[in-house]
Simulated assay, not measured.
Amino acid sequence: MDITLLVSIIVVVALLAVGGFFLVRTRSSVAPGKEETKPEVTQEPKAAPPQEDREREEGAVSKPPAHAPPARDTAAPAPAEPAAPEIETPPPSAGRMVRLRARLARSQSSFGQGLLTLLSAKTLDEDTWEEIEDTLITADIGVTSATQIVENLRTRVKVLGTRDTEEVRGLLRDELLKQLGTDTDRVVRTEPHGDRPAVIMIVGVNGTGKTTTTGKLARVLVGDGRSVVLGAADTFRAAASEQLQTWGSRVGAPVVRKDEGADPASVAFDAVARGIEDGADTVIIDTAGRLHTKTGLMDELGKVKRVVEKKSQVDEVLLVLDATTGQNGLRQARVFAEVVNVTGIALTKLDGTAKGGIIVQVQRELGVPVKLVGLGEGPDDLAPFDPEVFVDAILD
């Protein structure tokens, strides 16, 4: 065989062998649909599990994943501490009735304006004077006081010979002030006696507003810079002590109270003792409402006063009267005055009645001045009674 042909055959065979090798490699690694040989993977050593995984393995409670709802706390939450009530600073007593004058004028306008209209008539005959007297009596001034006012007015109108509106108003104003008494002592005694506080007892029948008046009076005194202790001696009604507690907490006045049915005299005694201990200026004792016809209850009220006086003198016994009760209120006042020596009247609901003449009648019959008047439902609607402001309000 020719040497050249032999070399050519050897070269071709070599080339075919090399090409076949590369073809097989390529198909085994990239050909689709063919099973490829997986490379051997060397296992890396495991990393330490994260903290929460370790806790889970050790039985500890782990935090929930971010997407999971928070776990419900099975333990009952601790009760929240009640917020301390905010201490209020009430307005002082000075000028209270002036600020409430408009309210008083609205409630008493029919009384005052009716009298002015009659007195300004062109002819003041007997029928007109009788109508004036009836108007006064209807306003609960009382027959005696009404008769006296009419007689004085008739004399002065006749002497002056004129019925100008302003002059008539001045005449009527003078007569009403005479009946009310401008020189009457209306001061509520609240000054302590050395180391002993002043003591004020609040008395009256059911429904007149004794507890509310007690709370409002505490606001008046705190507004005037006095320190006050309240005694919840109305132990027949649990609601009364709760109500008084609310009033006291608003102005920072401590309240001495006991369980329902406790001896009222012991509560009053402890209240005065607390006042002495605290160095308070004034102790106000709210007593239970009682019918003036019930002898046993009235005697108990006398006992409360006697027990208190073993600790400190009682400076004021304020009888709370409802201005809308009229003549019945006067009968109540007489009985209370006999039992506990009433020193002053607190007249409530004066803004809700046209019968402000009860002030004149109570003072005339009992010789006891009206010292406080309630002119609304607000906490600061109790005011020291000022006769001139009262008369001007009903005549304006």
Rank of each mutant, 00 (worst) to 15 (best):
V187S: 14
V187I: 13
V187K: 15
V187H: 12
V188Q: 13
R189E: 12
R189V: 14
T190P: 00
T190V: 15
T190Q: 08
T190D: 10
E191T: 14
E191M: 08
E191L: 08
P192H: 06
P192K: 08
P192V: 14
H193M: 04
H193A: 15
H193C: 03
G194R: 10
G194Y: 06
G194C: 11
G194E: 10
D195H: 13
D195Y: 06
R196H: 13
R196N: 12
R196F: 05
P197S: 11
P197N: 12
P197C: 12
P197H: 14
P197G: 11
P197L: 08
A198V: 06
A198N: 08
A198H: 13
V199N: 05
I200D: 02
I200R: 04
I200P: 05
I200T: 15
M201N: 02
M201T: 02
I202F: 02
V203S: 05
V203I: 15
V203H: 00
V203A: 15
G204L: 05
G204D: 04
G204Q: 04
G204F: 03
V205S: 14
V205F: 14
V205G: 13
V205H: 08
V205W: 00
N206K: 11
G207H: 05
G207L: 11
G207M: 09
G207E: 06
G207D: 10
G207V: 12
T208M: 06
T208G: 08
T208R: 00
T208N: 08
G209D: 05
K210W: 07
K210D: 04
K210G: 09
K210P: 02
T211Q: 05
T211F: 06
T211H: 07
T211I: 05
T211L: 07
T211C: 07
T212V: 13
T212W: 06
T213W: 02
T213I: 08
T214N: 11
T214P: 10
G215M: 03
K216Q: 03
K216F: 03
L217P: 11
L217K: 10
A218H: 06
A218M: 14
A218W: 06
A218F: 03
A218I: 09
R219P: 01
R219A: 15
R219V: 01
R219L: 02
V220Y: 00
V220C: 10
L221P: 02
L221N: 12
L221S: 09
V222I: 11
V222F: 04
V222E: 01
G223M: 05
D224V: 11
D224T: 13
G225E: 05
R226G: 00
